[in-house]
Design a protein around this nucleic acid. Structure first.
Length: 435
RNA sequence: GUGGAUGUAGCUCAGCGGUAGAGUCCCAGAAUGUGGAUCUGGAUGUCGCGGGUUCGACACCCGUCAUCCACCCCA
């Protein structure tokens, strides 16, 4: 007898039991509806790509985190670590078959070989939505508004969408004469909300000196309204410019759509990924900001240039479905469906199974999700099973009901029974109760 | 990748260098067609895994795997 292989999954990879998967499915359904309502269409791409495609513009971090190996044919391949880079390849490869502007959504698993933490896994689902082919404030705003709609659809309308523009920051760095330290500076600045102003200043002072550090702190100090912060940033960065104008336009649209309160100008956010070239976004839940951004993105005007000479500017954002779910669970706002069965057809007598199945077929034809309990067990056990599956009613017909020509409908929540002299009558009563 | 904590029944956790425990859950019966209470009885463990020290290891040591936390980075 061979030894039993221990059933297990890799670190950072997970199985999803029905309860968890139904919660995820509910999120996916809500997001799908949101994306479609704003004109996004779905696409899909392979999980595995040539490494050179995915690593084209990757920095050191991406290279460390990517799952990369030689396939059976000796090809150098890698698992996608996000959905944006594959989109760039996809656009370059299929631009002649597409139309611009192209707005797509894509919900799929991605893989990163980094260390795990709550809400951070090695295999996780991203929900991306992007608009490719235009570089306008309107497109930027469409992404912001879609984030806001998605958060509303998920029951967290109070989410704060933090917005910034890399161009404005770069102008400021030029003017302050520290452009050569931009990468390190951006990295430190990104931590402001986490480590606080004092600690940030210490780190910046080590990097660029005390006076420049004070200048940077003054630049990234948020807190006022969007327009006041923008005016101050613009002034410090050397006056009006196309990038700050873009932010102003973006805010004007948000304000006009009633989203002025959700959109905040956060001069300290810069985003680590180096393919962003314009506006950048991060989204925080008011109830649990410490879990990090649940939806991030920005404008990337050069990404497709790795794969095509055609100019394909884009803007988009990615929702981290698993982190979002962890956050929603932590604040008690995740949907918890027990199951999809509305009615359990009880098996009270195996010889009546044909009637049970016929009744179930009628229920389904009427749009009522139901299942027949597949063997005869004690009624109590069958009711308990129905409760586990989230059913609200049980349809019962045993020898006694059969003799009377009746069907019994049991309301599982209040444990009341009602008898009907036909299946049609029971069905009618059911739809009345369901409202 | 670095540092810290944790890993004992399905779940939540006690425990101690000398025979593995509690609560809960589950199963059966009291109640042979009606699941939320009660009572009675019952089942369940490679003490994460692998080595080592020891007369003896769940306990001590080393390694390993996994989870959580921090750094880093990010969804």
């Amino acid at each position: 007898m061979s030894e039993i292989i221990q059933p297990r999954v890799l670190k950072g990879f997970r199985d999803f039991l029905p309860q968890a998967e139904m919660e995820r499915a509910a999120l996916v359904e809500a997001l799908t509806a949101t994306f479609r309502s704003s004109g996004f269409v779905p696409i899909d791409t392979p999980a595995l790509e040539y490494s050179e495609i995915l690593l084209g513009k990757a920095g050191g971090e991406t290279e460390k985190q990517i799952y990369r190996f030689a396939d059976n044919g000796g090809r150098d391949v890698a698992l996608r670590f996000d959905l944006t880079v594959p989109l760039a390849r996809f656009m370059a490869e299929h631009s002649s078959e597409l139309y611009l502007p192209f707005r797509r959504y894509h919900m799929a698993k991605v893989w990163r070989g980094e260390n795990t933490q709550r809400g951070r896994y090695r295999e996780f689902m991203q929900c991306d939505f992007d608009i490719v082919g235009v570089d306008t404030a309107s497109a930027d705003f469409d992404i912001v508004s879609t984030i806001a709609l998605a958060m509303r659809a998920l029951g967290v309308p109070g989410a704060a969408i933090h917005v910034n523009h890399r161009g404005v920051f770069n102008r400021f760095l030029e003017k302050a004469g520290i452009a050569d330290k931009s990468v390190e500076t951006l990295r430190v600045v990104d931590k402001l909300s986490k480590i606080g102003a004092a600690e940030t200043r210490t780190l910046l002072a080590e990097l660029v000196g005390g006076s420049a550090a004070d200048e940077i702190l003054e630049f990234i100090r948020g807190g006022e309204g969007f327009e006041a912060t923008l005016a101050r940033m613009t002034a410090i960065a050397g006056g009006p410019n196309p990038d700050s104008d873009r932010l102003a336009e973006l805010f004007e649209m948000a304000d006009a759509c009633g989203l002025g309160g959700s959109v905040r100008l956060a001069p300290s956010i810069t985003r680590g990924l180096d393919y962003y070239t314009g506006v950048v976004f991060e989204t925080f839940l008011a109830e649990i900001p410490e879990i990090g951004s649940v939806c991030s993105g920005g404008r990337y005007n050069d990404l497709a240039s790795l794969y095509t000479k055609q100019r394909l500017p884009g803007v988009g954002a990615a929702i981290g479905l698993d982190r979002l779910l962890a956050a929603l669970e932590a604040i008690g706002k995740s949907a918890k469906p027990a199951g999809y069965t509305k009615v359990l057809v009880v098996n009270a007598d195996p010889s009546l199974c044909a009637e049970y199945q016929a009744a179930a077929a009628s229920l389904r034809a009427a749009g009522v999700a139901c299942e027949v309990f597949p063997e005869a067990r004690k009624l109590g056990q069958q009711y308990a099973y129905a409760e586990i599956k989230g059913a609200r009613f049980a349809l019962v017909r045993g020898p006694e009901e059969k003799a009377r020509g009746a069907w019994l409908l049991r309301n599982l929540s209040d444990r009341s029974n009602a008898e009907y002299d036909s299946l049609e009558a029971a069905l009618a009563a059911l739809s009345a109760l369901e409202g």
